[in-house]
């Protein structure tokens, strides 16, 4: 889960757990924002990040492949394979980019995102 803690956090219902493929991602529209949700089933974790890749401003991270670099869970943008940590949002392929990450909560098979 993400480490974001904020008193002003509002939880938004995003989708049903089956809307997100195992070990893959989907995109949801929340409060006008595009959020990518990943279900990393192999490590039994859920993650949420910006859907936009900061490299070329493409709305595509949810369509990227997830995996690990060492122990760090990550997603690779399908456009130019820039990788981002799903935990911290830091770019792992040597650029100065960063994406926002959001906390995820699962209740009764429903996925909630904290914004």
């Amino acid at each position: 889960m993400s480490s974001h803690e904020s008193s002003s956090l509002t939880w938004h219902h995003a989708c049903h757990v089956t809307d997100v493929p195992d070990d893959g991602g989907s995109c949801v529209l929340l409060e006008g924002k595009q959020i990518a949700i990943f279900h990393f089933k192999r490590i039994n974790s859920w993650y949420a990040t910006d859907n936009e890749c900061p490299h070329k401003q493409q709305m595509a991270l949810s369509r990227g492949m997830i995996g690990t670099q060492g122990d760090e869970p990550k997603v690779a943008c399908p456009f130019h394979k820039k990788s981002f940590s799903l935990e911290s949002g830091q770019c792992l392929s040597g650029d100065d980019f960063c994406i926002a990450t959001y906390p995820v909560r699962i209740e009764n098979d429903q996925v909630f995102i904290g914004l």
């Binding site: 070990d23 990393f40 192999r42 490590i43 990227g64 492949m65 995996g67 690990t68 670099q69 060492g70 869970p73 990550k74 690779a76 394979k81 990788s83």
Partner: peptide, 10 residues
């Protein structure tokens, strides 16, 4: 080992 990546998965 580990959980794969955009190189080995395809």
């Amino acid at each position: 080992r580990g959980h794969g990546c955009e190189v080995c998965k395809p």
